[in-house]
Design a protein around this nucleic acid. Structure first.
Lengths: 195, 195
DNA sequence: CTGCAAAAGTGACCTTGGTCAATTTAAATA
DNA sequence: TATTTAAATTGACCAAGGTCACTTTTGCAG
């Protein structure tokens, strides 16, 4: 019989997440050290790894929460009527993922992972995203602003693909990126969604 | 004045690469340990890191060489006349990248990186690939088997995007993947390249 | 209240990638 | 050939993530 977690455990987990978030806020994802997190939370190192599978597992919860927030935002906004409006809706998510290499790498690694019991928050976000976009596409297809000759799910996954492509290229280009991620994304989506 | 590398250095580098390749062949990329490579090559650990920026740098050379070989193959084959033939040409590369998570992660991390002096073999491969595909697209556009309403370079980058998408999803799905990577790729390319 | 079993937490220890001052080896020069 | 200078290599050492046998705490049953 699996008992529910005790109050102390929930508090410890919350403290770990809160301190990790604080440290990330102060010094970015790349500079986050497990040692610092456990010290700030006042627990031993082993405790962190009993709460999260590994360092990435901790980051996945932090980043996944932010992604969920952004998807909520998208869901609450009015569905886009055409491509320019679609772009507007995507910008916050695009900017977040493009803001830090660590975020991008982690999302790519976890997206869609069969997280069975694990921190499946990233996986959930991934599917919510696709579903949401597919819904948007249905209505835009009905309005005739998006091509209707392919299933919405396929088109939605394509959006995901181009989003990743644009950000990957951005990170790889090293130096100062030219223009916003959104500007780079637009021509791809135009070619993908409009016949 | 930068002098050319001495013979001994070239031999050491070759030995490191050869032993690394052998170990990868025996136990896969994921299980490769720096300690094992230097022991097999009969050098100290520091030597490896004077030849390669880090472990990824070593892997990049190994993987980059293989990618170059695959691109050579593509270049030597006849240019595809239509989508099914394009798919055929892509299969070897697709299978290679899909064969190991480490390969995919590394290529994604390095692709297009401004490798200044560094192991730019992966970067070169990346651009060769896009150029080659763009060339194919030009002729297919001329033949009317591929949409002509967008620049070949954009369409070529899109192929890259879908290739990555398909493989990412494949890895993320964990368990036994359904069908070949090529089967997953086809609908995306059909929608992308044909109006 | 007491004893006990499971949950939670601990910290010494391990692994592995990566560094760098010191040493050895090769080649250029006198 | 002896000397010198730079290239090449060394291996002790460090950093940081991750493990696990053991201790402490908690909640429940008697």
């Amino acid at each position: 019989m699996a008992r529910p977690p005790q109050k102390r455990r929930l508090e410890t987990r919350a403290r770990l997440l809160a301190e990790a978030a604080r440290l990330v806020d102060a010094q970015g994802y790349a500079g986050l050290r497990v040692e610092d997190v456990v010290e700030a939370a006042g627990v031993a190192k082993g405790t962190l790894f009993s709460h999260f599978s590994d360092k990435d597992g901790l980051l996945a919860v932090l980043i996944g929460a932010e992604v969920m927030r952004l998807i909520d935002e998208m869901e609450n906004a009015a569905p886009p009527a055409d491509l320019p409006q679609l772009m507007e809706r995507l910008v916050p998510l695009l900017d977040f993922v493009a803001s830090d290499r660590v975020i991008f790498d982690l999302l790519l690694r976890y997206s869609g992972s069969t997280g069975a019991e694990r921190d499946e928050i990233v996986t959930q976000g991934f599917y919510r995203q696709i579903d949401l976009w597919a819904g948007w596409i249905v209505s835009m297809q009905a309005a005739g602003t998006v091509r209707g000759d392919h299933p919405p799910a396929l088109l939605a996954e394509g959006i995901q693909a181009f989003l990743n492509q644009v950000i990957a290229i951005r990170f790889c280009q090293g130096g100062q990126p030219t223009g916003t991620p959104a500007e780079a994304l637009y021509p791809f989506l135009a070619a993908w969604l409009i016949t």
